[in-house]
Amino acid sequence: MRIPCPLCGDRDRREFYYMGAAEALTAPPGPEAPPEVIDDQLHLRTNPAGETRDVWYHETGCGAWLIVTRDTVTHAVHGAVLAERRGTTA
């Protein structure tokens, strides 16, 4: 598996550290939210068969945090963007 780092180019998966699902980057609910919502934010993750987005840290490379889009069924890696730019492109 190779991850296309936007700064470094295609690099081996072993240069990266997995930092969890990208959906966990959304702002947590406020303290007034019902317990189910906070429980969901903290503990429940979708486990898609197909396209998924997750966060990887380019540990032995440029040090950037990336949002990687990949497919859990085919193992295809579709692309990666810098996490700092996640609002501007998919």
């Binding site: 470094c8 690099r11 240069e15 032995t60 490379g61 440029c62 040090g63």
Partner: peptide
């Protein structure tokens, strides 16, 4: 020449 990389 002039290329750089951060790599293991």
């Amino acid at each position: 020449r002039g290329h750089a990389a951060r790599a293991p």
